[in-house]
Design a protein around this nucleic acid. Structure first.
Lengths: 107, 107
DNA sequence: TACTTACGTAAGTATACGCTAACGTAAGGA
DNA sequence: TCCTTACGTTAGCGTATACTTACGTAAGTA
């Protein structure tokens, strides 16, 4: 999961992920979308995304076709949701405890 | 925003953030929660979180008191929400376009 | 004033990261 | 078989990161 979060912390990788979110794309096609960087750099980014299981790879002859792994994205989303709410829950619990203690001292 | 995402990609910093989420804590108190790392390392993590505006600092005599900046956390949350839904919207749009095109070829 | 406490900061180190250039390789065509 | 295409991989480089140790410093205390 941490691998996925680190992968997402990179702006370029988020761009790549968007490209393959709703459409499969070959590595060359993805690389062509970035003019300021070599194909090799993109290939390495794809490797990171692959390792984080944020994209899935399929071979088509000489080409490698990528698409986003929505399941993994959902896992990340869920993890963060847990992270926020766990913290928010603690806040709420604290507020409730404070409320109860106030009542006790008042009573 | 990217600064904040990178800050959150670090597990240790997420732990620190949880510590100060619902309660203010002094730097020394935070550092004391981590036995496998020096106070200096924690101080530097706090610096990163401060720079990302994920925590707020207050002075109390010789102590520095930290607390989570919920507003910034909300901004990050919103940014990610946008990121997911923007991608999901594109998926939906694509599906609708495909549906319409199917109808056209059928008609 | 001298000492302690509670911090940040600077210097140094090992490792990771993002990148380029160069190389290796499987798939397909002439 | 030789060439091209479409890739991944490796080596090397500069910079960033996470850390430790050592130092600097403002705020209290004796």
């Amino acid at each position: 999961m941490d691998t996925a979060l680190k992968a997402l912390a990179e702006p370029r990788r988020r761009e790549i992920l968007k490209l393959v979110w709703s459409e499969e794309r070959a590595a060359a096609e993805i690389a062509a979308s970035f003019s300021d960087v070599t194909r090799s750099a993109i290939s390495q980014h794809l490797g990171v995304l692959r390792e984080a299981e944020l994209v899935l790879e399929r071979r088509d002859g000489v080409r490698r076709i990528y698409k986003a792994n929505h399941k993994q994205m959902e896992r990340v989303r869920h993890f963060l949701e847990e992270y926020w709410t766990e913290s928010l829950d603690r806040l709420r619990d604290l507020a409730e405890t404070a409320e109860r203690e106030k009542e006790n001292t008042n009573g």
